[in-house]
Design a protein around this nucleic acid. Structure first.
Lengths: 160, 160
DNA sequence: CAAGATTGACGAATCAATCTTT
DNA sequence: AAAGATTGATTCGTCAATCTTG
């Protein structure tokens, strides 16, 4: 797999783009996580796990589907749900139709905390991402992000 | 600080953009880190710390400057350099001109490992980011990223 | 005492190994 | 045996407290 020939180094323009993107990758998740933690006591992933559950029928979902929707590994979600369970925001039930599955079920308290956290989080996303972007910036960003995600998908499939 | 009025929820288009961006934020750093770890035994941050040192005169730098250049907290860099020191990729020296500063100094072995890691990393950045982007996508991405970073800067300054 | 840096405790993510149900 | 899920060990990042130098 390792290329033995001289690699194609980045051009000046590519390096500029990469530096700017790296800054976003490093700092945007931290900024969003800080706001959530500070104002709602939730981590970024906890918020999106609760959000996924709240959008699901009966506010419940299989662990594996929750992992898929939050782009996290199943093991990570299992630890996460364990912590949320200790805080009574989620509880676990075996799937009655097939005992191999575990259902994560959002509690009333979990729903309440999500509803309380949502406005502040959305405001922060808007302030940090959408407010500084003109409409055409936003469109272009979406196109670029989708292309990168598509490549990540094919790459992951190829690596096995 | 918390807005009591109804928040401005995201529009359909904004939600699409945000989902695409979230995927990139979640998966691109993981993909880059995996490649580095697998092929070179370095984490993403370790790589960029070594890269920063290699670009500095005498391949040495104050801890605080290294933290600034890698967008990491000083405490994180201190732990990181401690680990790199145990692996003999970096060593620490007090700054002879002012004993309050500590200089992180790249070793020959550290430089060797960086040089060995660089081609694979650059290839991966190219494959995952630049290959799927047309020239105008790349330009637009850079513009958008810079605007978000600028907002992150002003936001951080405002929060204190 | 102020700035730079380190330390230790704690919380969270990853990986491999294991367990359970079908 | 295979798929879903859990567990435990390890590692890394964060936070608060501390140390050191000027």
């Amino acid at each position: 797999m390792a290329a033995e020939h001289e690699p194609r180094w980045l051009t000046e323009a590519e390096l500029r783009t990469w530096r700017a993107l790296s800054l976003v990758l490093a700092r945007l998740p931290v900024a969003l996580g800080s706001q959530l933690q500070r104002e709602s006591g939730l981590s970024f992933l906890e918020y999106y796990a609760l959000a996924a559950l709240s959008d699901s029928p009966d506010r419940r979902m299989r662990m594996s589907q929750l992992a898929f929707l939050t782009n996290a590994e199943l093991s990570r979600v299992s630890h996460l749900v364990g912590r949320l369970e200790r805080r009574h925001l989620v509880r676990r039930e075996p799937d009655p139709t097939d005992g191999r599955y575990t259902l994560a079920v959002m509690t009333e308290e979990g729903y309440r905390q999500l509803v309380e956290a949502a406005p502040g989080h959305v405001e922060t996303v808007r302030r940090l991402v959408f407010d500084p972007l003109a409409a055409e910036d936003q469109q272009a960003l979406e196109r670029a992000a989708c292309k990168v995600v598509a490549r990540l998908d094919t790459d992951a499939a190829g690596a096995g």
